[in-house]
């Protein structure tokens, strides 16, 4: 018997846990591969990796239903993989190729999927917050019970438009879940140095928006909180705030030497709190999966990621004509 007990009584079945493990691992391996391709010069510009934060999107995606929407910032690869977008299309967008989700015209920070109701992929810190509330506004207007997950970081939480949005979302009872992915560093500035309050979610109280802080390294805790948030927003009670305390292992972007924190701090988080290791332990300790089962999953994920990299390398660059397409629509691309 392992000395460490499973974190808590799990609110997920063995199959569900295996699925979370698999998706988190997919994100981790995908991001490692993206980092590698960046180093090789195959991915250019800015590239913000999600490594360490995997439990946030995976836990929340477990609470969604068909019709729900999601929107996030430029650290968006994990969100896309978690909502079921094709890794090939995401990786090929990173390499700026025709097979990418935006046919190479968006890049790492700007990808979208009409099919998955993934509304991007936004590069202006804080701007996706009112956009997400707007998507929720459209759902309320149409009278359905869909909700919109609007992800942003602890850095964006200091933008004025976030609070303009909190005010209107509460006033109009918009079905939006504000997910603050607090990875503790707004680029290189720690929360202590940038943010007057330790608990960002409590700012919602000023607008009458309920919320809570969540352990973002524990996918089951995220899912648990996500269910409360979804229940609230879906039933017409308006917005809900989840401040998910997470941690990114890599720099802000590929060119960040991360000198604002110690290597020991990162290593401690990896060793003691890693979201993937936590699920791995639960799976093994509860005998939901054997080492061999997990090895098979690792192998499967490795293949998916390697295939996506291969696709992203071999997909052609967009045709020069693409320069001039998609500037104006001739018909509405997104019908109600």
């Amino acid at each position: 018997m392992a000395a460490k007990k499973p974190t808590k009584k799990t609110n997920a079945s063995a199959d569900e846990l295996k699925a979370y493990y698999k998706t988190m691992l997919l994100i981790r391996r995908f991001e490692e591969k993206a980092g590698q391709l960046y180093g090789m010069g195959l991915i250019g510009g800015f590239c913000h990796l999600y490594i360490g934060q995997e439990a946030v999107v995976v836990g929340l995606e477990a609470t969604t239903k068909e019709g729900d929407s999601r929107i996030t910032t430029y650290r968006d690869h994990g969100h896309m993989l978690a909502c079921g977008m094709n890794p090939d299309g995401v990786m090929a967008e990173l390499t700026g190729r025709e097979g990418g989700y935006s046919r190479g015209k968006g890049g790492s920070m700007h990808m979208f999927s009409k099919e998955k109701k993934f509304y991007g992929g936004h590069g202006i810190v804080g701007a996706n917050v009112p956009l997400g509330a707007g998507v929720a506004f459209a759902d309320k207007y149409k009278g359905n019970d869909n909700v919109t997950f609007t992800y942003f970081g602890d850095g964006a939480a200091n933008q004025g438009q976030v609070y303009e949005t909190f005010n209107m979302a509460a006033l109009w009872k918009l079905p939006v879940i504000f997910v603050i992915e607090n990875n503790q560093y707004a680029m290189g500035t720690s929360q202590q140095r940038s943010t007057s309050s330790a608990e960002i979610w409590e700012r919602g109280k000023a607008f009458g928006i309920p919320g809570e802080a969540v352990d973002g390294m524990d996918v089951l805790a995220v899912k648990d909180a996500g269910e409360r948030a979804v229940k609230h927003a879906r039933s017409g009670d308006g917005p809900y705030i989840l401040e998910i305390k997470t941690y990114r292992y890599r720099g802000h972007s590929m060119s960040d030497p991360a000198k604002y924190r110690t290597r020991e701090e990162v290593q401690k988080m990896r060793d003691e709190r890693d979201p993937i290791e936590q699920v791995r332990n639960i799976l093994l300790e509860n005998k939901y999966a054997s080492e061999d089962d997990l090895k098979a999953i690792d192998k499967e994920i490795k293949k998916i990621v390697n295939d996506s990299a291969e696709f992203a390398k071999t997909s052609p660059e967009p045709a020069p004509e693409e320069l001039w397409t998609d500037i104006y629509a001739t018909e509405v691309p997104q019908e109600a």
Binding site: P130, G134, A138
Partner: peptide, 21 residues
């Protein structure tokens, strides 16, 4: 009627357009 909050309501308007309105 919106509050006096141009940055916010313009963003909500754009999001509503993304969402099909």
């Amino acid at each position: 009627d919106t509050p006096i909050t141009e940055h916010g309501f313009a963003g909500i308007g754009v999001g509503a357009a993304f969402g099909g309105l």
